[in-house]
């Protein structure tokens, strides 16, 4: 499974959505289920999956599907 598939799978599981809705519009402001609890669940799952530990600032900045991909680059994870 490539990194994009893993990334998407985690989002689908956490937010209980279909792959097709994962795009630039998928953000904390637009997704009702995206609250502090789901955000921490998302962070925890991504950390486990990619064997990284996010900086606190990055956790607070992780507010969208697209922003998450960008932040993961800091940890040498290319989502593609």
């Amino acid at each position: 499974m490539n990194s994009l598939s893993k990334y998407n799978e985690i989002f689908c599981e956490i937010f209980n959505v279909d792959n097709s809705v994962l795009n630039d519009e998928f953000t904390a402001n637009t997704v009702e289920k995206w609250d502090s609890i789901t955000q921490m669940s998302l962070i925890n799952r991504l950390e486990d999956c990619f064997d990284i530990m996010f900086e606190i600032d990055d956790i607070t900045e992780f507010v969208s599907y697209t922003k998450g991909k960008e932040l993961l680059k800091k940890y040498s994870i290319e989502i593609q």
Partner: peptide, 10 residues
């Protein structure tokens, strides 16, 4: 607490 709580949450 902040560091450890993240792991406990899992």
């Amino acid at each position: 607490t902040q560091i450890v709580a993240k792991f406990m949450m899992r």
